[in-house]
Amino acid sequence: MIQIQNVTKSYNGEKVLKGIDLTFSDKEFVSIMGASGSGKSTLLSIIGGFLRPDDGNVLWEGQNPFDFTDDALAGKRRSYMGFVFQSFKLISTLTAKDNIMLPVTLSKKINNETLEYFDFLTTELEIKPFLNKYPGQLSGGQCQRVAIARALCYKPSVVILDEPTGALDSVMEVKVMELLKRVNKEQKTTIIQVTHSEKVSCYGDRIIRLKDGLIVK
């Protein structure tokens, strides 16, 4: 379970989040929507432990990630939480395959099961043909799918996605959302996504709407 308690955040004196309270239960599939500048990406970054809020708490299974040591946080990042960034954030010096397998390799969890799952993900996301290419050689859509595969490969408890289908065509968009739905159901993974698309948001169990830094009831 992830809890957000009275979180606020400002940039250059301007409040972007104004006292957000949220709870994400296990196995929940939540979509966060809002207009441009409403604070969605900021909220997602705070949930993911990348951005420290000015006020309030973030709790992962009752623990504040900002209190973790570096090693403990790293450990959590490769086992508890997966993150798909809006700008993909693939490591340019690693091939697509290396990027996907990076968290698994760091966790020393390369075994038949993970390899099989890797195979499954890359087939589903149709990225098998370019696993040996570098991010610089891939299109935006291909990079996004690689980033999604990386986030899912080690079967984390929580997956956070920022505009996961922004660079995809409609067919692939459906495929990706179906996959996420399946992961949510079968692996009981909590999925939190930010999206502009109403169609994509409907895949979630719950939609949270943000406006001017506040949750719209």
């Binding site: 990348f50 570096d70 090693d71 790293a74 450990g75 990042r77 490769r78 086992s79 993150f83 954030k89 693939l90 490591i91 990076l102 968290p103 760091l106 966790s107 990386r150």
Partner: peptide
């Protein structure tokens, strides 16, 4: 990015 992917600072 390595850190974000779960690599510890020591690593």
């Amino acid at each position: 990015l390595y850190s974000l992917s779960g690599m510890s600072k020591k690593t």
